[in-house]
């Protein structure tokens, strides 16, 4: 069975200006080593919400591509959230699920995908227009790059083995990541999200 790190290594040169959101755990550590940049948001501790966060971004910024790295355990926590996403079906969102059939970080306890659960089938049933399962690195890279080019809500479920590559840990905390991400959005979109201290009192809403 392929490794997640092999998939990420193959994909990294091909994502262009796509905004990436990562799930908790090894995927964040591996991705920050391979392709850290200002437009990456690392979701460190809210298991189940990575896709919901990426979905909120994709709706709010329709002319950008968004790519979220999910996990099987986290997606199973928030399957209803997939129905919410599918109902709006933002064409600029691709959900990649690294399905290692386990809650790896706390010790490798098996999830339901180690048994009968099929996440791509669940996504299709909940209304995703495109969802497929891949088991080789070549198929992974082809499927994800095709999804990013397709301009249609898509899911790719990658069956991977457990294990995290031994790479340096991130040198940035959550708030630093937020500021870096938000300032990048502000520069790129020409908007103000976190007003500077001298401006905030002038922004008081009339009410």
């Amino acid at each position: 069975m392929m490794k997640r790190f092999e998939c990420l290594t193959a994909l990294a040169p091909h994502i262009g200006e796509t905004v990436v959101i990562t799930n908790i755990g090894g995927v964040a550590i591996e991705w920050q080593h391979l392709h850290d940049n200002d437009s990456t948001f690392y979701m460190w501790h809210s298991l189940g919400l990575a896709t919901s966060i990426a979905f909120g971004m994709a709706l709010s910024w329709p002319d950008r591509q968004f790519l979220v790295f999910e996990g099987d355990g986290s997606l199973l926590m928030n399957l209803g959230g997939l129905a919410t996403v599918a109902e709006k079906a933002p064409p600029n969102l691709t959900v990649v699920v690294f399905d290692n059939q386990a809650h790896e970080s706390p010790g490798g306890y098996p999830t339901a995908t180690a048994g009968r659960a099929n996440l791509a089938a669940a996504a299709l049933a909940l209304g995703f227009p495109v969802a497929a399962t891949v088991e080789t690195v070549d198929d992974f890279q082809d499927s994800v790059t095709a999804a990013l080019a397709r301009e249609r809500l898509s899911m790719v479920v990658a069956k991977v083995q457990t294990g995290t590559q031994n790479v340096p840990l991130p040198a940035m905390d959550a708030r630093e990541n937020k500021y870096r991400f938000v300032r990048w959005v502000e520069r790129t979109r020409g908007v103000t999200i976190i007003p500077l201290p001298g401006h905030v009192s002038k922004m008081r809403a009339q009410g």
């Binding site: 959101i21 948001f41 809210s46 189940g48 919400l49 990575a50 896709t51 919901s52 966060i53 990426a54 979905f55 909120g56 971004m57 994709a58 709706l59 709010s60 910024w61 928030n78 209803g80 959230g81 129905a83 919410t84 109902e87 709006k88 937020k178 991400f181 938000v182 959005v185 502000e186 979109r189 908007v191 999200i193």
Partner: peptide, 20 residues
Amino acid sequence: VPLAREEEGVGVCAGAWLTG
């Protein structure tokens, strides 16, 4: 965004705020 469960909405709203 009509939700299935409230907690996902916290994530959806966070994504919305982070992008403006």
